[in-house]
C-alpha cells in the first residue's frame, strides 16, 4: 500500500480505532472487576483465547459451512438479481408484474418466513441458502434496476443520433451507468448474505457459526457466542473490503482526479 493511501486510511479510521480500543479496554476492566458478570459480556481477551483455543472447529468446521452457504446464496442472488433487473429494464410488463413482488419480499419478516424453508428443504444446506438468497436478492435487483434506469435521456438521444441501436445504448451507456448503483447493492448484499446464512443456521443446522453461537448460548457460554460473532464480523469486514476494492477497480474513472 503506498504511503499516501496509508495516510488516508489512518485519517479515515484512526478515530474509530481509538474509540473501539477504549471500548474494549472498558469492557475488559468491567468484567475483570466483576462489575458485569462474564456470562453477560465476556472479557475481550477471553474471547480471543476462546478463538485461539478452538480455531480448528471454529474455522475448519463451522466457518467453512457458513461460507459455503454464503457463497452459493450470494452467487444465486447476484446472477438471479442481475438477470431479473435486466429483464424488468427491457420489459415494462415484467417490471409491473415483478417489481412489487420484489418489494413485498422485503416487507415479509425473514425470521418468520425461514421455518417455511426448513419445511421445504429440511435441515439441508438449501434451507440456509434459501434464507441467504431471500435476504440478499433485494439490494442486487433494486441497485441494478435503478442503475439501469438512471441512463440520462440526453445521452441516449446523442447515441441514437449517431445510429446506435437499443442494444448499443444498453451495452455502451446503460451498463456502465448502472455500475455505481449495482456496486452499492452488491456491497449491501454481501453483508446481508452473511446475516442470511447465520439466521438460516439458527433455525436448524448441525454446523456453521450461526449454529455454533446458538449452541454456545444454550450452554451459557458467552465466550463461545462472542467468538462466533467476532469471526463473522471479521469475515463481513473482509468481504465488504474485497467488494469495495473491486468497485474501486471497476469504477476507477470516478476516483481519478
Amino acid at each position: 500500500m503506498p504511503m499516501k493511501q496509508i495516510k488516508r486510511w489512518i485519517q479515515s479510521y484512526s478515530l474509530f480505532i481509538v474509540f473501539a480500543s477504549l471500548l474494549l479496554i472498558v469492557f475488559e476492566w468491567l468484567v475483570r472487576g466483576e462489575i458485569i458478570p462474564s456470562f453477560i459480556i465476556p472479557a475481550p481477551t477471553s474471547v480471543i483465547v476462546m478463538i485461539l483455543e478452538n480455531w480448528r472447529p471454529l474455522v475448519l468446521e463451522h466457518l467453512s459451512a457458513t461460507m459455503l452457504e454464503f457463497f452459493i446464496g450470494f452467487f444465486i442472488s447476484v446472477i438471479g438479481g442481475v438477470l431479473l433487473a435486466v429483464w424488468m429494464f427491457f420489459s415494462k410488463t415484467v417490471e409491473k408484474m415483478l417489481y412489487p413482488a420484489v418489494l413485498i419480499s422485503q416487507m415479509m419478516p425473514i425470521i418468520a418466513l425461514s421455518p417455511i424453508f426448513v419445511l421445504w428443504f429440511g435441515y439441508t444446506l438449501w434451507s440456509k441458502v434459501a434464507v441467504t438468497v431471500l435476504i440478499s436478492f433485494f439490494p442486487i435487483v433494486v441497485g441494478t434496476y435503478d442503475g439501469l434506469k438512471s441512463g440520462d435521456k440526453e445521452y441516449i438521444e446523442l447515441l441514437r443520433s449517431m445510429g446506435a441501436t437499443r442494444w448499443h445504448t444498453f451495452t455502451k451507456l446503460n451498463i456502465p451507468m448502472a455500475l455505481p448503483s449495482f456496486f452499492s447493492g452488491l456491497k449491501l448484499a454481501t453483508v446481508y448474505a452473511l446475516v442470511g446464512a447465520t439466521i438460516g443456521e439458527w433455525l436448524g443446522a448441525s454446523e456453521g457459526l450461526g449454529y455454533y453461537s446458538r449452541r454456545m448460548s444454550g450452554n451459557l457460554n458467552a465466550e463461545g457466542v462472542f467468538a462466533a460473532i467476532t469471526i463473522l464480523t471479521i469475515i463481513g469486514i473482509l468481504l465488504f473490503s474485497v467488494m469495495t476494492a473491486i468497485e474501486k477497480k471497476a469504477l476507477h474513472w470516478k476516483n481519478t482526479e
Partner: peptide, 12 residues
C-alpha cells in the same frame, strides 16, 4: 453529426 449543449462525453 450532432453536438448538444452539454458535451455529454461518457465519463468512463
Amino acid at each position: 453529426g450532432y453536438m448538444p449543449q452539454r458535451d455529454l462525453l461518457l465519463p468512463w
